[in-house]
Design a protein around this nucleic acid. Structure first.
Lengths: 249, 249
DNA sequence: ACCTGAACACCGTTCAAGT
DNA sequence: ACCTGAACACCGTTCAAGT
């Protein structure tokens, strides 16, 4: 089998350079959508610029003409997924607004779980999240009574709580998912020595594959619904306690 | 320049197959250490098995004889970094134990910030964290009065709070760090429209490069010390509120 | 302005063969 | 058991050249 220079996969029409005659010109938007689809299907680990180009039936260099870099494209994808997460402002009390934000954010990530690792674990992607989200959180926290340094701290805690949990809940399995690894971890979890780790041993049925570090499936297969709800509640409780410390009475 | 088959970088001694005569045999441990050093220097994005092999002065295949896969090696590295984070048990009240755990964990990650993204954002690495950490958190939460389903929930909230924050604080910059991106984000942050985002605008000096989503440096350059301390406090306050809900009185 | 065609400098992993 | 030497099947990105 000789190398295949043509990007087209089937019945390759004779291609020529220059802007295509049909209105189907390639745009940054279309590329980001195709990238998201590819990531949804295969995961971020298997995502490649070359295969993306192949699906769009263009040469790899063409994609680069529009997006500059792989990292920038992924940031674009992350931004797309998170575009609509901020609830409308001015309708809810600050506690309810934050709870709503958390839930909407999780809903968005659940539709595209493979982008989760971009959100918290890449500064580029993180930096491309919608500014409405930032403004909304700040407004809610201001309503809660925070200002100055405590406002910064509360804001960071909220964002970390939200994106941090989701990053972990949907963190990807090993690429070579022949379950060999899952079997090994399952084995490891079930052969814990009772005398050294009594609490863990006692609660094993409760924890196995449902608790962080003890999981071999991620949130796509085994969602952590109740833990997430509790996390929302804990975050708000924590914020209220913080507010009381800062502004007593 | 012709291809360089020899792995040795300088004054290549004549190499022969088979176990080396000198006691300097390659081990999984030594490989993991070298990998960690390489990640510390160049970042996870620039880490490669081939360069690792070159530094160890062996062929790439030799590394694979010991570690099976790149992902497994990275999990090993993560485990190494987190090996000693769990505080000794039985000496501290549960609140103090958890606070101590958070701080020790952050101290460990600060020494090797480039492994941060492994901890929360990869199920393999997450699954290889020390079991003492798990047992310790469970013991603390049991002392706090949690059992059954609430114990699972509280545990997940604690782990997510801890690793989630650190994953975000130390999330890596773009690989091609010619500051072009940083300049762009800085620009974006400083040209926010005041009428659309009043709270953000008003607090910009406080937030710029110190708040998530508004940063162009990560925790290695601009540590979020006070926010992290607050996060510890908020987590414990949240847990106490949760405990009160579960076990009133 | 937008795309082709080809090249450059890399990857992780596998495998027969050596000692 | 442990390692060499080479190959396989990929990558992201760049660049001259076309239209």
């Amino acid at each position: 089998m000789q190398p295949m220079p043509t990007p087209a996969k089937k019945k390759a029409p004779p291609k020529t350079a220059g802007r295509p005659a049909g209105g189907a010109a390639l745009t940054k938007q279309r590329i980001a959508e195709a990238a998201l689809a590819q990531i949804d299907e295969l995961g971020l680990g298997a995502f490649s610029m070359r295969e993306l180009a192949a699906r769009l039936e263009v040469y790899p260099a063409t994609v680069h003409w529009h997006v500059s870099t792989r990292e920038a494209l992924l940031a674009e994808v992350a931004a797309t997924v998170m575009a609509q997460v901020a609830p409308p402002s001015g309708k809810l009390a600050w506690q309810a607004w934050i709870a709503e934000l958390f839930r909407r954010c999780r809903a968005a990530v659940r539709q595209h779980p493979n982008v989760a690792q971009l959100l918290g674990a890449q500064l580029v992607s993180n930096g491309s999240l919608p500014i409405e989200l930032v403004e909304g959180v700040l407004a809610a926290l201001t309503e809660a009574g925070f200002e100055g340094e405590p406002l910064l701290e509360a804001y960071n805690c909220v964002i970390a709580a939200m994106l941090g949990f989701l990053t972990m809940e949907f963190s990807p399995l090993p690429a070579d998912n022949t379950q060999a690894w899952a079997e090994e971890l399952r084995e490891r979890v079930h052969t814990i020595r009772p005398l050294d780790h009594p609490v863990l041993t006692r609660n094993l049925p409760l924890l196995a594959n449902k608790a962080f570090i003890l999981r071999w499936d991620n949130g796509s297969t085994v969602p952590l619904d109740s833990s997430f709800e509790r996390h929302v509640q804990m975050t708000i409780d924590g914020l209220e306690a913080f507010a009381r410390r800062v502004r007593p009475g």
